[in-house]
């Protein structure tokens, strides 16, 4: 169990997580470099992780922490796939700019 006296107002975590999430989202939307976009995704995932852990603490419920582990595992897998995609992209087009590949155009 989590001790009572160490509880911090969860609002701080929410604000911090919001800032982290926004930075991540902006990085994904505005940067052309695929690696930076991937980092932005990571940042967003970790913002949500932070909230999971913070609320787990304030609600005294460990299931939030368990979910945070899940997210980490998923994030690790996602990084593997993402980096692999980026390498393949680079091999075929000699660039990792996200604006370059237009094959998805409908």
């Amino acid at each position: 169990m989590i001790p009572e006296d160490t509880v911090v107002d969860p609002m701080y975590f929410v604000v911090l997580a919001t800032i982290l999430f926004s930075i991540g989202a902006v990085a994904v939307l505005l940067r052309r470099n695929a690696i930076v976009a991937l980092l932005g995704v990571e940042l967003m995932l970790n913002a949500s992780n932070l909230l999971f852990v913070a609320f787990a603490r304030s609600h005294r419920d460990v299931s939030g922490q368990a979910l945070a582990f899940f997210v980490m595992v998923v994030a690790a897998a996602e990084v593997v796939v993402g980096l692999a995609l980026i390498i393949t992209l680079f091999r075929s087009r000699q660039t990792i700019s996200l604006d370059e590949p237009m094959d998805l155009r409908g």
Binding site: A25, V28, L29, L30, R32, A37, L98, D99, P101, M102, D103, L104, R105, G106
Partner: peptide, 18 residues
Amino acid sequence: LVRRLQAGRVRSYAAMML
């Protein structure tokens, strides 16, 4: 009409999702 949305720009897809 819908086709115009599918411009092939990955970042605009991401913006739409957001």
